[in-house]
Computed example of a mutant assay.
Amino acid sequence: MNQRIGYAGVSTDDQHLDLQRDALKKSGCSIIYEEKASGKSANRVELGNCLKALRAGDTLVVWRLDRLGRSLQDLVKIVTDLERAGVGFESLIEKIETTSATGKLTFHVFAALSEFERNLIRERTQAGLAAARARGRSGGRKPKLDAKQIREIKTLLKDPSIAVSTVAKRYGISRTTLYKYVGAA
């Protein structure tokens, strides 16, 4: 039996689900999963339960696109997974539904824009790294200790009366960092 299953979510305690709940009921949803969780949170339990409940032929309905995905990339992944499982998707406010050819086209335009954005970010990152290398800079954090300090520390640690923690404190580093540079010797 094909069902319309709704998902409603808000990100803070002072927001209410009433508007979304009413719109989902009006659109014919027989079951509505509700959640109060940060949109950035990867742990959205009710969304997971909702996605598990969907069967081929069902339609997942949300009030707005931003209620489902934390980002456009996340949204595209969720809807693509739904499509592979034979589940339709509908967003009431944006009037997007993937059960028709026009709805699928609209959604795939969003997906293409998302991929384009990811590629632009990757290209900019690569160009920035190449420009930094051309100026003699390499990535990563600057070393905490220089070669002279490492020699001094090795000399100090040869004296068994000097504690490792004392040497680390003197150079403003942790014991772990000290061992990283001079080994356990």
Results as ranks from 00 to 15, higher is better:
Glu117Arg: 06
Ser27Glu: 13
Lys158Glu: 14
Lys36Gly: 05
Leu60Ile: 12
Glu97Thr: 14
Ile32His: 14
Thr102Asp: 15
Asp74Gln: 13
His108Leu: 00
Val62Cys: 09
Leu54Gly: 04
Val79Thr: 07
Leu178Met: 10
Val182His: 15
Gln73Phe: 00
Val61Lys: 15
Arg141Met: 07
Gly48Lys: 04
Pro143Ser: 11
Thr125Met: 08
Val109Ser: 06
Gln73Ser: 13
Gly39Tyr: 12
Ile31Glu: 12
Thr106Val: 10
Lys180Gly: 03
Thr177Leu: 00
Val167Glu: 04
Ser91Ala: 13
Asp74His: 14
Leu51Cys: 09
Arg118Val: 03
Lys148Pro: 05
Leu24Cys: 02
Ala147Ser: 04
Gln126Cys: 01
Gln126Ser: 06
Leu68Asn: 09
Ser11Pro: 15
Leu105Lys: 06
Asp14Gln: 14
Glu152Arg: 11
Leu120Arg: 09
Ala112Leu: 00
Arg67Pro: 08
Val87Gly: 03
Gly140Val: 12
Leu120Pro: 04
Gln3Lys: 04
Gly48Phe: 03
Gly6Trp: 14
Asp22Lys: 03
Ala168Gln: 08
Pro143His: 07
Val182Ser: 12
Cys29Trp: 13
Ile5Arg: 03
Ile32Pro: 15
Lys36Met: 05
Thr106Cys: 10
Asp22Met: 03
Leu24Pro: 04
Ile153Phe: 00
Asp66Phe: 05
Gly128Arg: 00
Arg135Asp: 07
Cys50Tyr: 02
Gln20Thr: 13
Ser71Ala: 08
Lys95His: 06
Ala168Asp: 11
Arg55Trp: 05
Gly9Gln: 14
Tyr179Asp: 07
His108Trp: 00
Gly139Asp: 13
Glu83Asp: 14
Gly136Ile: 01
Ser174Ile: 09
Ala8Ile: 08
Leu113Lys: 05
Lys158Ser: 11
Arg175Trp: 00
Val45Gly: 06
Gly172Trp: 10
Arg124Met: 01
Glu34Leu: 13
Leu156Ile: 10
Glu90Gly: 13
Gly136Cys: 08
Leu51Thr: 02
Val109Glu: 01
His16Arg: 11
Arg122Val: 03
Leu145Ile: 02
Arg124Thr: 03
Ile96His: 04
Val109Arg: 04
Gln126Asn: 10
Gly6Ile: 13
Gly140Tyr: 05
Ala134Arg: 15
Val61Tyr: 13
Val79Arg: 08
Ser165Met: 06
Lys77Pro: 03
Gly88Pro: 11
Ala8Asp: 01
Leu47Glu: 02
Val76Tyr: 05
Ala85Lys: 08
Ile153Asn: 11
Val62His: 15
Asp81Ser: 08
Ala56Lys: 06
Tyr7Ile: 10
Cys29Asn: 13
Leu75Thr: 13
Gly128Val: 02
Lys169Pro: 05
Arg21Leu: 07
Arg175Gln: 02
Ser38Lys: 06
Ala127Asn: 14
Gly183Arg: 07
Gln73His: 10
Tyr179Thr: 06
Thr98Arg: 01
Arg4Leu: 15
Phe110Ile: 00
Lys95Gln: 15
